[in-house]
Amino acid sequence: MTRRRLIAISAAAAGMALLPPHGKAAQEGVTWQGEAMGAQASLVIHHPDRAMALKLTNDVVAEVRRLERIFSLYMDDSDLTRLNRQRFLIAPPLELVDILRQSREVWTLTGGAFDPTVQPLWDAYRRHFSTSGAAETGPSAQIVRECVGRVGLDRVACSGSRIDLSVPGAALTLNGIAQGYVTDRVVDLLKAGGVERSMVDMGESRAIGSAPGDRPWRVGVSDPLDSARIIEVLEVEDRAVATSSPFGFRFDAEGRFSHIIDPRSGATPQRHASVTVVAGHAALADALSTAFNLMDVAAIAAAVHGNAGVEVHILSHEGGWTRIRA
């Protein structure tokens, strides 16, 4: 998974507000700091029962670690790495089957713009631009065509007993949905522990309930060229927010080839400066924000139509906003 600046979770149990750091309830909170999902992480849980706060803290950290061992591309022994290496996986974890099911739903909704089998194209761009003296025009057309031939979620067979990558050279990446999926699992754990107010930020944000004072949570959308500058503020309750931008990572110094690769063509078009999606679940918001970067406004509107609760905020390269709601 891509490295994020910070993972932060602040949660309050029923009947407790999230207070400033020097408040009395803050002193009763349990705080954890460390690394999770390749990023610096912090977790604060306020609960009238300190033992429950400790348990929730330990449960969240353990769950994130467990899911990393399933979804990570950077662990040699993760389930995803083993699947890519041997092209099959017997008795896969339920979470891997579930995230592929959700991926297929978004793949269908977006006409293939979201496709976890895009990994061969990612590898081709990475290899090309990490080679000394690499052509500024990117991988050859032949290499791109060969990689596109290995892409296609419809050629992945997935069941509770086995996953098969039927195409030689095929490989999966869950970078476009895993952060959101993990966020949703953390939210489930917190709710089960009695948490009624929380902002979970694991690269993608998801709110539980309302903010202190029964106001909506405020989530800032950063300038894609200056992450310290907030250019839009969204108000959400019990919603998730995810933003994707071609400026997040670029393979080449000139910035012509971004990490958002169209699995259908192998190109890296930069249609929009950024796309922010608000949805009921973080996995859906995460995957849609990735796919919508590859789609024009009309196609995005068609995908959103009929999906209640989904809204999209598209920032153009000229700085204008287009907002779409179901």
Rank of each mutant, 00 (worst) to 15 (best):
residue 86 Q to C: 04
residue 143 I to M: 10
residue 131 T to V: 02
residue 72 S to G: 03
residue 81 T to P: 03
residue 132 S to F: 06
residue 49 D to P: 01
residue 49 D to L: 06
residue 58 N to F: 01
residue 48 P to F: 04
residue 123 D to I: 15
residue 47 H to Y: 05
residue 129 F to A: 00
residue 108 T to W: 04
residue 86 Q to I: 04
residue 128 H to M: 15
residue 59 D to F: 01
residue 149 G to P: 09
residue 150 R to I: 14
residue 92 P to M: 03
residue 65 R to S: 13
residue 61 V to M: 14
residue 62 A to P: 02
residue 87 R to K: 06
residue 135 A to S: 12
residue 56 L to C: 09
residue 121 L to P: 07
residue 108 T to C: 09
residue 49 D to G: 00
residue 69 R to T: 15
residue 94 L to V: 03
residue 131 T to I: 04
residue 85 R to N: 14
residue 146 E to A: 07
residue 68 E to P: 01
residue 48 P to K: 11
residue 121 L to I: 11
residue 47 H to A: 00
residue 130 S to W: 11
residue 115 D to W: 08
residue 66 R to K: 12
residue 101 R to I: 03
residue 48 P to T: 04
residue 109 L to A: 10
residue 124 A to E: 13
residue 90 I to L: 08
residue 85 R to Y: 07
residue 92 P to Y: 06
residue 50 R to I: 10
residue 68 E to W: 05
residue 45 I to Q: 00
residue 48 P to Q: 12
residue 51 A to R: 06
residue 57 T to V: 13
residue 51 A to E: 15
residue 71 F to T: 01
residue 98 D to I: 06
residue 58 N to G: 14
residue 80 L to W: 09
residue 137 T to A: 13
residue 118 V to P: 03
residue 134 A to I: 03
residue 143 I to T: 13
residue 111 G to R: 00
residue 127 R to T: 14
residue 117 T to Y: 11
residue 115 D to K: 09
residue 72 S to W: 03
residue 86 Q to H: 05
residue 146 E to D: 13
residue 92 P to C: 03
residue 140 S to R: 05
residue 71 F to M: 07
residue 102 Q to I: 04
residue 74 Y to I: 02
residue 106 V to R: 00
residue 145 R to S: 10
residue 117 T to K: 02
residue 99 I to K: 07
residue 96 L to M: 06
residue 47 H to Q: 01
residue 118 V to Y: 11
residue 86 Q to P: 06
residue 149 G to Q: 12
residue 51 A to M: 07
residue 48 P to H: 03
residue 136 E to S: 13
residue 92 P to T: 02
residue 88 F to D: 07
residue 133 G to W: 02
residue 88 F to H: 13
residue 42 S to E: 12
residue 66 R to S: 14
residue 132 S to M: 13
residue 45 I to R: 02
residue 81 T to F: 13
residue 47 H to R: 09
residue 99 I to F: 10
residue 42 S to I: 05
residue 107 W to Q: 04
residue 120 P to F: 08
residue 60 V to W: 15
residue 107 W to D: 04
residue 147 C to M: 09
residue 74 Y to C: 03
residue 142 Q to F: 08
residue 118 V to W: 10
residue 59 D to M: 10
residue 125 Y to A: 09
residue 121 L to T: 01
residue 76 D to A: 15
residue 90 I to T: 08
residue 113 A to I: 04
residue 88 F to A: 07
